[in-house]
C-alpha cells in the first residue's frame, strides 16, 4: 500500500510528467531513429544466422518502439473487451510475431544499408525519413513515425514505399482473428507459436 506522502508525490509527478513528456522533439526523434538504424545496420552486416538476427531485431523492436500501442491498434475493437491478462499475453506474443516477420524482411537488406535523410513534424507525430540502399536494386524509402506519448520518444509505425505497417498488420491480425472464430486466446496461441 502507498502511504499518504507517496500518493501526494505520485499525484504531483503525474501532473508534471505529461508536460515534460509533451515536448515532442524533431531532433530527438531523428536521433532515436539514427540510433536504431545504426544497430539494424550492424545486425544486417553481422552475417549471423536468420534466427540470431531475428532475436537481435526483437531486442531492438522492444527498445525503440512502443510495442503495447502497436499491438493494441492492430488488434482493433476486440481489444476493448479483452481482460488485462489477455492483453498482456497477446502483446507478448505480438512482440515475437512482429520481430520475426519484419526481422526476416530486414534481413533481405543484407549487403545494403539504411541512411537517415531527415525529420519533420506530420500531424501529431514526427516523421523520420530513411532510405534503404540495396545492392543492385533501386533504393527504398522507409519512414518511421515517432511519438513521445508512451512517455519517451519511440516509433509506433513505419511505412515502406507507401505500405503502412500498422494498417497492413491490422488487416492481417483481423484475418487471423476471423480464422480463430474471433477468439483472442486462440489468436495469442497461434501468433505466439511463430
Amino acid at each position: 500500500m502507498l502511504n499518504r506522502r507517496q500518493v501526494i508525490i505520485a499525484a504531483a509527478s503525474a501532473s508534471i510528467l505529461p508536460q515534460a513528456a509533451a515536448a515532442l522533439s524533431v531532433s530527438e526523434s531523428q536521433s532515436i531513429v539514427a540510433a536504431l538504424v545504426t544497430e539494424v545496420n550492424a545486425v544486417i552486416a553481422s552475417g549471423k544466422s536468420e534466427a540470431a538476427m531475428i532475436s537481435d531485431f526483437a531486442v531492438l523492436f522492444d527498445r525503440y518502439s512502443d510495442v503495447p500501442t502497436i499491438a493494441r491498434y492492430c488488434l482493433g475493437a476486440d481489444a476493448r473487451s479483452a481482460s488485462p491478462a489477455q492483453m498482456q499475453a497477446y502483446t507478448a506474443a505480438f512482440r515475437g510475431y512482429i520481430a520475426s516477420k519484419y526481422g526476416r524482411r530486414f534481413r533481405e537488406f543484407v549487403g545494403g544499408e539504411i541512411i537517415v535523410e531527415g525529420a519533420a513534424p506530420v500531424k501529431s507525430w514526427i516523421e523520420v525519413e530513411t532510405t534503404v540502399q540495396l545492392r543492385g536494386r533501386s533504393p527504398l524509402r522507409m519512414d518511421f513515425h515517432v511519438s513521445d506519448r508512451s512517455g519517451s520518444h519511440k516509433f509506433f509505425n513505419f511505412i515502406i514505399e507507401g505500405v503502412n505497417m500498422l494498417l497492413t498488420e491490422r488487416a492481417e491480425i483481423g484475418a487471423l482473428l476471423d480464422r480463430q472464430g474471433r477468439n483472442l486466446d486462440a489468436l495469442t496461441a497461434e501468433i505466439g507459436a511463430v
Binding site: T69, I70, L75, G76, L166, R170
Partner: peptide, 8 residues
C-alpha cells in the same frame, strides 16, 4: 494510422 488518437 494514429494509434494514440484512435487507440483501437
Amino acid at each position: 494510422a494514429d494509434p494514440y488518437a484512435d487507440l483501437y
